[in-house]
Design a binder for these strands. Structure first.
Lengths: 195, 195
DNA sequence: GTCTATAAACTGATAGAC
DNA sequence: GTCTATCAGTTTATAGAC
């Protein structure tokens, strides 16, 4: 198992992750420094280095926690809604909530920085997208009507790939990053998937 | 007219832009420095400051040129192909070519850095996406069959938004950034638009 | 667990010579 | 148009005290 526990974390470590996540979702990896975090948290950079020795450690912990949270959120969403359309609409709503917060998907913004990221952070990001794609593939394939999916897509996975791409891409391309327009765009796509 | 000439540029200025574009498309705005460019071009940072006094000027020139090139490419593509499907397939091919080159769409990667960018660079990026969206809207609306568009989309613009989002998003989310998989994903979407 | 102090490198940018 | 020299600020990171 390469996936460490990463729960039972110190209160300070958690505060650091919270602030770091917020800043990275707004500015990207390379525009967030230990100094920025220290300012925001009223700590010194040294204190942060105690919890996360190198920036790579901070980055990895950040994405790992994000993956875990995302997994739990998806599970809850699966429990609360039975039919595919509602599940997809709520899924999209998660991302429009991020936009409302003034940021982007953590892994979306980090994916843009990929080339400059430490290897272990890159791997976590790849896993995140694989998990999203797998989950979407599963729930689309599990639809009771049996024929959910985009018209041109031969498999649930093909539809899942289009949807995931649109979810991440619309965060970058939606005019003014308006959450309403974002949601509207993706609802149209969902309407084309669940007919 | 706020749009400056930006053609008739010095050979060195063009070399700088070429290298800067390549590096930014791989690493993002904040991970490319005057020093990096100077190394790559066998110049000093001062020489680059002569052509582009501040980094904001370089960024703006970069996106402006990219916009102009993109506009010309789209026009050529419109001339060479008559039917919607071929136009869209070739459009997508442009972006898969970027992936093959090891980079991302200049404006896609810059959009992720938005918060940290000078205002004038932000504005250029917004314009880029507006132009892409408008062009896609136009060619979808102009389709001779008259009923092109995603099933769930009431207007050509709604379809255009989904497609643009997918084009940009799939560059980030496609496993291994494999150009084949990228193209395949978007072809499926095109198949759902041009039925 | 947090601090002061510090290092070595890098950042965007400017002055002034050629 | 390009150079040398230099600036002040920031970056990631470490040593050692409390």
């Amino acid at each position: 198992m390469e996936d460490a526990p990463d729960t039972d974390r110190t209160p300070t470590a958690t505060r650091i992750l919270d602030t770091a996540q917020d800043l990275v979702q707004r500015r990207g990896y390379n525009a967030v420094s230990y100094g920025d975090l220290a300012d925001e948290l009223d700590l010194t950079t040294t204190a942060i280095h105690y919890h996360f020795p190198a920036k790579a450690d901070l980055g990895q912990a950040l994405v790992r926690r994000y993956r875990r949270q995302s997994s739990q959120t998806r599970a809850a969403l699966e429990d609360q809604h039975e039919n595919l359309r509602e599940r997809l609409v709520q899924y999209v709503e998660l991302f429009s909530g991020i936009l409302e917060n003034g940021g982007l998907c953590l892994c979306g913004i980090l994916a843009a920085d990929t080339e400059t990221l430490p290897d272990k952070v890159q791997r976590e990001i790849q896993r995140f997208f694989a998990e999203q794609e797998d989950w979407l593939t599963t729930i689309i394939g599990a639809d009771s009507s049996g024929d959910a999916g985009l018209q041109g897509c031969p498999s649930p996975r093909a539809t899942a790939r289009v949807l995931l791409a649109a979810v991440e891409g619309a965060m970058l391309t939606t005019p003014q990053r308006d959450p309403e327009t974002y949601t509207d765009t993706l609802r149209r796509l969902i309407d084309s998937i669940v007919t």
